[in-house]
Write a protein that binds this DNA or RNA. Structure first.
Lengths: 217, 217
DNA sequence: CATGATTGGATAGTGCCACTCCCCAAGTGG
DNA sequence: CCACTTGGGGAGTGGCACTATCCAATCATG
């Protein structure tokens, strides 16, 4: 199909598709002539993934490119590609390393991981963006005076554990490594809003259960 | 304290604080003279909350103002203030209401809520931003061809339920309604990165458990 | 009292980012 | 043959979160 058809089928303007092509988010089409290129279903699929990453996952263009590049980097094995791809996903601002509360947060997080016996992350430690993201968030919480000791974090870690099992179950439904990789990225990003929305809904439920009724409200 | 001291104590530049004052994120200080204003600890606390919302929670300025305004709106009761404040938190882009996959997503979500017997949200339905956020996310997932039937969502809903219980437990540690409100907003927003980071770490753990070892990787 | 520094307020500008507009040369189809 | 379409590329746009600069009033100091 031509670029114009790719546009109508995906609902993304041709200008934006051309922009993505320029930015390397979408591989160039098969050149038919000097002014024509042919795109296929894979392009359409890829384009939808890109849109999902950017719009739903709020992934910056540059990060999205890194993610997608890692997915198809033949020089890496399956596991490394997955790790690289997920590492490239956004993980918020970093906190100053020398800050006192950051240091305390790091200590709390380490204690949590130790207690959970999550050895893989302990081995990789501060290399992991998710680890740093966690330290930053815990540091911010304590700086604001909110509780986030190990026992406060434990329920969230338990939930994270369950979620990861669900995620991996979903990913294992796919047979080919390529599909698994793509699914891992898509599901990691796209289930985030699902989870956050369900949490907020459940909060409203629980809040209503605990505080409501009182005044028919 | 003066604006300059507020700045050094919070680590936020005076220019930015002045910007927040202009935008109504921070109440004006007590005017001492035509060119001097006095700020107190409450201002400092509020400023830190604002920073947390904006930097960690990625809440847009305008939304942050709405949230904070709702928190101190004396015309509303406790529950309404909380609901309004949380509703003002960002919830991503909306999906077209007339779309076929959006319609299917709405159906799936309704079935899920029905099965969970979450009656509060069912009563309020599409009014809730979290509900619409969930429908959008589920619609996007299915548009990309990823599974998100009721039974696929159930584990995430279960996790959301547990999280909400933890959240409310944390909030109930505070005695005064005002503190509870502020804590609800701060914890809702600030535990999001904690949760997402823990999920990613747990994913890496679980992935390593299932796929690792094979090649010492 | 004189005077230079400081303060808070206002306005305009900056930098980033995700597009989006516009033009052009090469090709296509009636 | 020629109007139209296509893809490429550079420059422009709009939104947002600041940030730089200016100004008049006031404060601290000698």
């Amino acid at each position: 199909m031509r670029l114009a058809e790719l546009s109508t089928r995906s609902g993304v303007s041709t200008a934006t598709i051309k922009y993505y092509l320029r930015e390397g988010l979408l591989p160039p089409g098969r050149r038919v002539s000097a002014t024509q290129a042919e795109y296929d279903e894979e392009h359409l699929e890829r384009l939808r993934l890109v849109r999902a990453l950017i719009q739903v996952g709020r992934v910056p263009i540059a990060s999205a490119r890194d993610v997608l590049t890692a997915l198809e980097d033949d020089s890496l094995d399956h596991n490394s590609r997955l790790g690289t791809a997920v590492s490239a996903l956004p993980h918020g601002p970093e906190s100053a390393a020398d800050d006192a509360s950051t240091e305390a947060a790091r200590h709390t997080v380490d204690a949590l991981l130790d207690r959970l016996d999550w050895e893989y992350i302990q081995g990789h430690g501060a290399d992991s963006p998710a680890y740093r993201m966690l330290v930053t968030a815990v540091g911010t919480l304590s700086r604001l005076g909110y509780p986030c000791a190990v026992e406060d974090l434990a329920p969230y870690a338990r939930a994270g554990r369950q979620l990861a099992v669900s995620d991996l179950d979903l990913i294992e439904r796919y047979d080919s490594p390529d599909e698994q990789l793509q699914a891992a990225v898509a599901l990691t990003v796209l289930y985030e809003p699902v989870l956050l929305a369900l949490r907020r809904i459940a909060q409203a439920e629980e809040s209503n259960r605990r505080f409501g009724q009182g005044a028919r409200e």
